[in-house]
């Protein structure tokens, strides 16, 4: 009986892949199973070393420059074979957009249950996982009653833990030829300037309190540190300080990040309508009577030009 960890197919090991492997390691220890990992994609070379310390016994590697991105028609048959070969009972992947697609496909092929986007995974005489439902308003705690069991782990939630000795055995295999594979025309890796607001996990937004367009760098710096998107209230947009695409509110974008940091925003209802689905709202405003304080989780009454740079500094320390 083994656990299979799926290493994200991005040509580069992302932390999301390491997080999934860490979870797989914990479960393997608790369930007393051997941990197998699989990698399908462009050559990893030295990066394979980064997979040490997770107690992986074997890494099966299918390397090819041609497969730059997960293609279900190529990968699913590979995974299916591995499941039989190693008697896989649990598969753990990461819940990136591509990771979720792999997990769903292999789950269907194995007629197995799948829980996507887990925020907590445990083993207690069987696999258990917690996942948010209803846009995060509810957390559901679920147990698998059948094997194989498949889960994908939400990125950036669980820690990367290396607690085992020894290096994995690397088994390199030939990439199978799939005659009618879906063709990938091209991959555009554009360093998008800033994260898309509606998809952002963290948003730092500024309002009238910003004082003028010359002050955006104060917020932008915090965005860069946190990987956040920059938003603005309507009054900041109307003042011509920033483009309309950044506007959050009833007549702008409706966002639902995990964390919303409102800086110098009074928080009238027209703005709230755009950000009320944020999971956690932090308000920074020098006016203690600002409406935003009656609908935030954490409020700091203070000048944003003092608070934000401090916050940037602290976050940088925390994240480095």
């Amino acid at each position: 009986m083994s656990i299979l960890a799926l290493i994200a197919q991005q040509g580069e090991l992302k932390s999301s892949a390491l997080e999934a492997v860490s979870v797989a390691n914990q479960i393997a220890q608790k369930a007393d199973m051997q941990l197998i990992a699989v990698y399908i994609g462009p050559p990893l070379a030295d990066q394979l070393k980064r997979l040490e310390g997770f107690g992986i016994e074997k890494i099966v590697v299918f390397e090819s420059e041609a497969v730059t991105y997960y293609q279900n028609d190529i990968c699913v048959p590979i995974l299916q074979k591995l499941v039989t070969e190693f008697d896989i009972k649990v598969i753990i992947g990461s819940a990136t957009s591509i990771g979720k697609e792999v997990c769903a496909s292999i789950a269907a092929k194995l007629d197995a249950e799948l829980i996507q986007d887990c925020i907590e995974v445990d083993w207690d005489d069987g696999l258990q996982a917690k996942k948010p439902i209803f846009a995060g308003k509810i957390i559901s705690d679920i147990s698998f009653t059948n094997m194989p069991a498949i889960i994908s782990v939400r990125p950036n939630i669980l820690p990367v833990i290396r607690n085992r000795e020894g290096a994995p055995e690397i088994i390199k295999r030939e990439m199978p030829h799939v005659p009618h594979a879906k063709s990938i025309k091209n991959i555009v890796r554009e360093a998008k300037s800033g994260v898309e607001l509606t998809e952002a996990k963290v948003i730092v937004a500024g309002g009238r309190g910003i004082g003028g367009p010359e002050n955006w760098p104060v917020l932008q710096e915090l965005c860069d540190v946190m990987g956040a998107a920059l938003g603005a209230s309507r009054s900041a947009v109307d003042a011509g300080w920033i483009h309309h695409t950044h506007q959050i509110g009833q007549t702008g974008k409706v966002v639902s990040p995990d964390l919303y940091i409102a800086c110098g925003i009074s928080g009238a209802i027209q703005h709230q309508a755009g950000m009320r689905n944020s999971k956690v709202v932090v308000a920074i405003n020098k006016d203690p009577g600002a409406e935003i304080f009656s609908s935030c989780d954490y409020g700091i009454v203070g000048d944003l030009f003092e608070v934000v740079p401090l916050l940037t500094k602290e976050m940088r320390k925390l994240l480095s």
């Binding site: 957390i139 679920i142 709202v281 304080f293 989780d297």
Partner: peptide, 21 residues
């Protein structure tokens, strides 16, 4: 037939914390 059972569900929280630091 489902291969999963729900042990429990919980509400993280419904209301804002309104905590002024």
């Amino acid at each position: 037939r489902p291969g999963l059972t729900v042990n429990s569900i919980s509400l993280p929280r419904q209301e804002r914390l309104l905590k002024k630091l």
